[in-house]
């Protein structure tokens, strides 16, 4: 049993489905809307019969009334493929006032994977360090979960972030529409990150971003001079935090604003999360929000 799995939490969240905000395409029936018309019970629309249509789908009652052939189309339900893109660069190893960002990412990815597989959808995992490091293809099987969890547990963040390359690679590699959940501190160029999101969006993927920050990174509250050592490349900087706090916060504010704007541009579901945030409310809010957006 992995430490990042909270069975009680998962059982409490079990009643909430993980929904996609865009129609999904799959090869098995599921509970998610499909862009194709199919044999679901959900009526979609009438359309005129054209040669080649399945005559079994003609609405005879309409023909009887109007002497015209109409095809009665229904919404097709299919399954959901979710890809959890976990940033495993060195910066995710940071542990300040909250728990490690990578640990928080594990919890989110594991919990949502569990919920997805539990509702019959497929969950996959992409780990990126300085490049796309590891991929676990999505699967609906319950046994697949253990592989996901083991992969998450084995993560050891290091090196510079290769998130942007990873996102572009994923956008290219995933043929079918999918839910792409990004778990990262996004310490990269917001403009380039926006390009990666647009790439995913272009491939009609549903994007959710969990922007993970440590409370200390947000508050930047230090009393005395510190020597800051970069977790990714090891460069060091001695600074008097009290002197640069204002500038730091300004830079952070600009960064967060830019990231939020890029996510909004790509219609990505953006969540800024500090690692001291309780997990259950976070996930409950995430799931509920997606549910309401889906029903609209």
């Amino acid at each position: 049993m992995h430490s990042f799995i909270d069975r009680d939490l998962l059982s409490r969240l079990g009643s909430l489905p993980v929904e996609s905000r865009v129609p999904m395409m799959g090869n098995v029936a599921g509970k998610h809307r499909s862009p194709h018309r199919g044999s679901s019970v959900e009526f979609a629309e009438y359309r005129k019969y054209v040669a080649g249509d399945d005559t079994r789908r003609l609405d005879w009652k309409v023909f009887a009334r109007s002497d015209r052939f109409y095809i009665k189309e229904f919404e097709a339900d299919t399954n959901l493929r979710a890809y959890f893109v976990v940033d495993a660069s060195g910066s995710m190893e940071f542990e300040g006032a909250g728990e490690k960002k990578i640990e928080f990412a594990r919890k989110i990815a594991a919990s949502l994977s569990y919920l997805l597989v539990n509702q019959g959808d497929a969950a996959g995992l992409s780990i990126c360090t300085d490049k796309l490091h590891l991929e676990v293809p999505p699967s609906r099987r319950a046994a697949h979960l253990e592989r996901l969890f083991s992969t998450l547990a084995a993560l050891e963040p290091e090196g510079p972030t290769g998130l942007l390359d990873a996102l572009h690679t994923i956008a290219e590699k995933i043929a079918q529409r999918a839910l792409v959940v990004i778990l990262s501190d996004l310490f990269t160029d917001p403009a380039e990150f926006g390009d990666a999101l647009q790439h995913l969006r272009f491939r009609k993927h549903d994007i959710a971003v969990f922007h993970l920050m440590d409370p200390q990174e947000v508050g930047f509250e230090f009393e005395r001079p510190h020597r800051f050592v970069d977790l990714e490349d090891g460069t060091a900087l001695v600074a008097e935090p009290s002197l640069i706090a204002a500038e730091y916060k300004t830079a952070l504010r600009e960064f967060l604003t830019a990231v939020r704007a890029k996510c909004s541009d790509a219609s990505a579901d953006y969540q800024l999360v500090t690692t001291d945030t309780p997990l259950e409310p976070l996930l409950r809010e995430f799931l509920t929000a997606r549910l309401s957006k889906t029903k609209k």
Binding site: F94, H226, V229, D230, E232, A236, L237, E247
Partner: peptide, 29 residues
Amino acid sequence: INRRRHKTVKWAAMQFLLKATRESRGKKK
């Protein structure tokens, strides 16, 4: 002495730190 007796921390958000240090060199210094 304080500058020499600094505490070392591993830090992730280095990009903001570098930018803040650059910008605070004039007036703040």
